[in-house]
Every structure is written in C-alpha cells, then in structure tokens.
Amino acid sequence: MADNNLQKTFEKFKEELSGLAQYVDDARKGIDEIESTFQLSSQKFPEASGQLSTVSGDLENAANNIMSLLENLVDEHDKSKALIEELSALAGTLPDESASKAKEVTAKLEGVNTGMKTIIMDMFANSSFHDLSGQKLKKVISTLSGVEAKILDMACNFGIENKGAGSEETKSSYADGKGDMFNQSEVDKILNDLKLG
C-alpha cells in the first residue's frame, strides 16, 4: 500500500518536472526569438536606413545632373533664338519673293524653338521628382528609426543582452551617422549596445 502511494507520488513528481522542463524550454525559445528580433533591429534597421539615405543622395545627384543638362539646353536655345532673329533680319534683305519664303521658314523655326523651350521648362518642373520622392523616403527612414528605437527599448526593458551587438558590422552601421538624430537616452542605449557605455 505504502509502495503504491510512493509510486503515485513519484509519477506525479516526474510529471511536474517534465512540465517545468517544457515551460523552461518554451521560455528559452521565446527569448531566442526576441534576441533575433533585437539583432534584426540593431543591425538591419540602421543598414536599411543607411541604404535609403544613399538612395536619396543618388536621386539628388541625378536631379542635379539632369538640371545642369537642362540649363545647357536653355543656353543653346537662347543661342538658336539669336540666330533665328539674325536669319529673320537677313530675310528682309532678300528680293521680295525669296524674302517672303525665308520669313515663312524663320517663323516656323521660331515656333519650333519656342516649343522646345516649353518642353525644357516642363522637364525642369518634372525634376521635382527628387524633392517629392526624397520627402517620402525621409518619412520611411523616420518610421524605420522609430521601430528600431522601440525594439531597442523593449530589449533593454527585458534585460536582453545581444551577443552580436558589439560586432564590427553593428559598429560600422552606427558609424555611418545616417538616419535621424537621437536624444541622450537613446545615445546611451546605443553606447551600451556597442559595449562603450
């Protein structure tokens, strides 16, 4: 009878231990997931922000190059306008029949030239794509930085130590200096993250 009771208690104890082991294992898996999220935040988010900032810079360079070309076109247009005016003046010196034909041609040339100028100005106006896309990129970069800060906050509150956070890759991603400005507490968190705090 006593052996039977001992056996039942032992079985119950085994069952409890097994449940506890399962609970610890589940908790560990949960922490692993949070740690990997933390790693994603500390390494990938600054990387993504940096790449978007580079895209913004590339767009600015492209827009400036396009505008330099357009400004050259405007200069060329002004030269051709002056030449057309010269042609028009010359046409006035020709005999009547030829003069009227020459004036007709120069008038057409003037029309073409004016049309080209309108197109050039429209191209100028459309170069504002850089400003519009740049503003949207700024919003995305700001959102990424916000999510990154939240995840870092969460990780700090849970007391998670990120083993890979002090890596060269992480350091260089912060060293890029791209992205939004941080306040002192965020700076302190980053310094801790980089093992400098």
Binding site: E60, N64, M67, M121, F124, A125, S127, D131
Partner: peptide, 17 residues
C-alpha cells in the same frame, strides 16, 4: 525657401524663364 537644393534650382530657373 526650400530645403532641397534641386527644388530651389527648379524654381529659380522657372522664375528666370
């Protein structure tokens, strides 16, 4: 007044025109 240099350049060119 614009923070994007390209945008200032666009407006300046259009105003010049």
């Amino acid at each position: 007044v614009d923070d994007f240099s390209t945008m200032r350049r666009i407006i300046r060119n259009i105003l010049k025109e």
